[in-house]
Amino acid sequence: MKKSIYDRPVKTKREVSKSAFNFLFSEIVQYSQSRSNRDAQILTNQLEELGYPLGLKFLELTCLREKSSTKEHTIINMLRFIRDPFWRTLFNKPAGDIEQSTVDDCMFMIYEDEPSLCNQFSSAPRGQERINCSAFVAGIIEGLLNASGFAARVTAHFSNDSTVFLVKFAPETIKNRNV
């Protein structure tokens, strides 16, 4: 009988080479750019949309591997989960610091220690310097949060050379899940 996806183990971790990822990712960015009409906002949205459906998959997979039959249900634990097991699944290292905004209680910032995989080999054309290819990762995080019941919007921005992810939770989420 033909081997199906169900015959393969799901708990063992596999790695993909950086060059393979970047080769594929560069095609994704080029494809999105060719359909974006040279508009930075459309390109960013497209990258976010591509990442979004992966959020649910990463959430389920990482929870199964790291947490065996438990899940996170408070905001603070969810952010910790994103910082370590989730970031480690994606990039093989934990994320940098997470801070809560002093201006807006609903806003959290996830910092990166060094330029991420998505921006390492991409330089925006002149006049489009606002494009941050980590929008793809922002989309994954947004998909992950929404799938687990936290209404949030996630965007990627440059701070110096590395990226900071702005996570803005809906006020109801902050009220209900801040236990």
Binding site: I5, Y6, R8, V10, L56, K57, E60, L61, L64
Partner: peptide
């Protein structure tokens, strides 16, 4: 576990 495999 099988559900996750299907999702992958």
């Amino acid at each position: 576990e099988n559900l996750i495999k299907a999702l992958m």
